[in-house]
């Protein structure tokens, strides 16, 4: 006896391959400092590390992302416009990475700046922790985040790599080092009364004759300056 209801319940063939939605792929591709291992979901790059220990890469991927990962054939080109998939991150981590991604090429911002941008000015150390484990370095430019005094500080690919990336982007590393040595954290223009972070492109246009150096935002404020609305030095 055939039961028409049971026949009706049996599902139609759903012609759909979910492999792309479920399985992430990884490949080796060229980055600005040499080859990198890069993993991607259907949405974008999920994880990137310097080429080397493939087994360690896969083990870390399984631990951190918890998604299946198989070798792929083509990798994305690595740059600021590469789409990323940060769904495995917490909302705080995503906010920190988004704020970091907003730093223009060739410029630097201190960790405290990122903390202010995400609305948690006291969470400077937490910002450092998030960036130290940035799942997608080179794409989200954590190499543009520096110590409070403007010195470059640590980087997961090494301090030398950090300097090289910034130099390749056109940063004036010697100029920034001179500001750090002079303990200058803000520079103002005595014609506009506006103070900027030293790497802000507005700061770079201030002529020597009109440049005023400050060792803190409070000092600039006391001198009657306001903060630049582009680099938002924190006021």
């Amino acid at each position: 006896m055939t039961d028409s209801l049971l026949a009706r319940l049996s599902p139609p063939a759903v012609e759909k391959d979910l492999s792309g939605a479920v399985m992430d792929t990884f490949t080796t591709t060229a980055g600005p400092l040499g080859d990198v291992l890069v993993a991607s979901s259907a949405e974008g790059v999920t994880y990137l590390r310097p080429v080397g220990d493939v087994d360690g890469f896969r083990a870390e991927y399984r631990r951190r992302l918890g998604r299946p990962l198989v070798p792929g054939t083509t990798g994305p080109s690595i740059g600021a416009r590469t789409p990323v998939d940060l769904r495995a991150c917490s909302s705080f981590e995503r906010d920190v990475l988004d704020a970091t991604a907003s730093i223009p090429a060739g410029q630097t911002r201190p960790y405290g700046w990122v903390a202010r941008e995400v609305g948690s000015p006291a969470a400077v150390r937490a910002v450092g922790t998030v960036l130290a484990r940035n799942p997608v370095p080179l794409i989200v430019p954590c190499h543009r985040v520096t110590k409070a005094d403007g010195s470059l500080g640590r980087y997961m690919l090494g301090e030398e790599a950090k300097a090289r990336l910034l130099a390749d982007e056109g940063a004036d590393l010697e100029g920034l080092a001179a500001f750090t040595a002079a303990r200058t954290v803000l520079v103002g223009s005595d014609t506009t009364g506006i103070a900027c972070l030293p790497s802000c492109h507005h700061a770079r246009r201030i002529t020597d004759a009109h440049r005023v150096s400050f060792r803190s935002a409070a000092a600039a404020r006391d001198a009657g300056y306001r903060g630049c609305t582009v680099c938002r030095p924190g006021w």
């Binding site: 049996s10 599902p11 139609p12 063939a13 759903v14 759909k16 391959d17 979910l18 492999s19 479920v22 399985m23 299946p68 198989v70």
Partner: peptide, 13 residues
């Protein structure tokens, strides 16, 4: 990856 290919039809249904 094999598990997904093998079972996705019946799970989708």
């Amino acid at each position: 990856a094999q598990v997904v290919r093998w079972y996705q039809g019946s799970l989708l249904g």
